[in-house]
Amino acid sequence: MSNRPGVSAVPIIELKNVVKSYRLGEVVITAVKKANLQLHLGEFTALIGASGSGKSTLLNIIGCIDQADSGIVTIGGSDVKQLSDNEKSDLRNQKIGFIFQNFNLIPVLDVYENVELPLLVNGTVESARERNDRVLEAINDVELSSVIHHRPDQLSGGQRQRVAIARALAGRPSLVLADEPTANLDSETSSKIIDLMIALNEKKKVTFLFSTHDERLMSRVKRIIHIKDGLLDSDSGPAHESGT
């Protein structure tokens, strides 16, 4: 149970004994070893570890873009193993937002259009007006209204990452996963991006889980999960505090 103010008692993500291995030629590499984890609504969590420690693999499994070899992954009460490919797509679209290290924006689309992308396939957004409202709200949240019709090549690195954050938020997800969101940014911009994510976490009550190997960011985050060689070896978060 979480005892942190603003954090829900019910986990939105639960991993039980999750294992993931890859075969590289003759060698089998276990990227995630018997991971157990709970994330609650409204948490702001950093997944910290060295390169190759299994951070990205764990994020991919939680985000339903990779499948665990064994163990149980539950998102919003649903066992993802039981979901069809289309159901997983809908889950990613409506419950999860993704922020990538290299932004992954469409270069020929402007800020508005990039943010609008996930809403084009969102079955819960019924009208063009609602879609427009959501896009403008997300852009406003990341303070990019002044460059709304700029294309990515007309934006700075920090602005591009803000566009990616707005795109992740446009679908109003309960969980945002960010894979090294500050890796391609300078330290000042990185700091601003983390500030923005913290502000959105507090304002929107969106759960954030991001991976990083930047030790400087640790002091800004309330819950830190360390991963080493595929093992979750320390967790400073609310779940830890509560003894779970």
Partner: peptide
């Protein structure tokens, strides 16, 4: 390829 991955990760179905 990575763009297709991005589309999939933000919820585009294969057919879409």
């Amino acid at each position: 390829t990575s763009e297709i991955g991005m589309y999939r990760s933000i919820g585009f179905r294969k057919r879409q």
